[in-house]
Amino acid sequence: MKSTFFTIILGALSIHCALTQTIQDPIRDYLTSHDADRDTAMPGFQNLFVVKCDITNSGKQSILLSLNDYGGRQGNYWTAYLPTSGGYVKADDSETTLIFIKDMFYVGSVGGKYGLLAYAPGGNGGDLNLFQIINGKVAEQKVGTLSLSKPEDKKTLEGYFGEAPDWKSLKRYSVKTLNLGDLRQKGYDVDQAIQAAKAGNHPLYKPLTR
């Protein structure tokens, strides 16, 4: 009984530490940490997308990371690394996926709320979704529905995101693509990361709790 109790306490402590752990190098963390979901995209890994923007309104840049073809038409699925003293902490996205098209996003105040505004295409237009970081967790709120047949909605879209191929987000924010060669050159063992993900069996998969 006692040993079970201590095991639970130790387990809880280790989970707490893992959640609040300061990360020095978000790219290394992204490539070496596993989740049952993102690992499914790793066999096709060719490019790492790196976006730097102030998603927390702290005056400091967060680092958002995604892989090629990890996502769908609403955009890539991103992991957000938030600035903290001495490094970064990973935003909790266990309940909400941060989704945006890397060419089409806006960071700032929208309707009095600060966050990352994303466009999710669908129907004859789509939705505007605002992603916020609240207490370290990713939260999503639909802030508009757009119809492309309405000139005023088209104007709204272009106001935030611009127009192909001159997307405003590419000028406003740092949006970089690092291929496998770039990553190897920077000292990241991408081959090991891909192999480990392919194995598909990791005791480190974080169990969801509710």
């Binding site: 979901d37 996502g71 769908g72 038409r73 609403q74 955009g75 996205d93 309940e95 996926t97």
Partner: peptide, 10 residues
């Protein structure tokens, strides 16, 4: 996933 609605785990 084809629609890109979110990660599988969510």
């Amino acid at each position: 996933a084809y629609n890109g609605a979110g990660s599988f785990s969510t």
